[in-house]
Amino acid sequence: MAAAIETKQLTKSYKSRAAGNINVVDNLDLHVEEGEIFGFLGPNGAGKTTTIKMLLGIIYPTSGEGFVLGKEIGDMAVHRLISYLPERPYYYEHMTGLELLKFYGSLFGIYDEAKYRALLEKVNLHRDMTKTISQYSKGMQQRVGLAQSLLNDPKLLFLDEPTGGLDPIAHREIRDLILSFRDEGRTVFISSHELSEVELICDRVAIINKGIIERQGKLTELLHGGRIEITVGGVDEAFLKGLNIPDSNIRGLPVGVLMDMPEEQDPNGIIDAVRNRKGTVISVVPRRKRLEDLFVETVTNPALGGKPSVPPAVAEEIVK
């Protein structure tokens, strides 16, 4: 598949009085495939918005290069094929929803009243299209923003924190809209702090911290490395230790003994062994790795220290 976004050592530095030049975005190598929902994650100030603005040609890179839909960044022709929903956006308040779409449409040369109405309907604003933006709630403003971002039938959408500050219902509405974008064959590049949401909708993610990409890859691969917890009764810790399960931890509980082990381990062998010993299996609980765990681990683990991280699968092989 072709790359929708590709950056090579993309860097943006700002002068700061205290620290001289700081790289707010530091030698970024991003790779986003066509047709996927890509999550761009990182703590506040990590450089997400700065990266998006560079990709859109709103600010200029200090060094490195970037390609959007195969064209070097800044190419106006690309602007016909992409769209952008800024973080905490603001629209001309005196306009109605319909007038707003008319305005943005005219920038593309699109004068199609039926299209404006259809888009407002898609984001569930058709009943409010004659209200002015100043009368819109935050959620409605965000939805009208999504409607304007669809005007040109974009192949690639940049959404910067599209659900920031919205209630759970609005969250779900916007999540469903974003999923519908993928079904329509669009690529979505989304920056977000809502990790549980990202986990639900994204195909691949990159985690950026202090301008450096710490992790990038398929969500399923990055979240590899979950654990299974087995609680058993009627056997002692020594018995479980004797099973020699690699990378396992065993500790006593009031109700029995708990062992956790990598998710690749087949629990059936252990269950059989316990039963043969006339023990009882109290529970088997898979503890899937959550994106939140990965995020916190990536951002707070000083050992990773900005160096490209070793994927968990490889790490395990080294351990073995």
């Binding site: 859109l56 602007h79 769209s83 603001y90 943005y104 920038l107 940049f158």
Partner: peptide, 14 residues
């Protein structure tokens, strides 16, 4: 300041 310029400049507007 109000970031209205960003949506405009992300469209085909020089």
């Amino acid at each position: 300041e109000r970031r209205t310029i960003y949506t405009i400049l992300s469209k085909p507007v020089q």
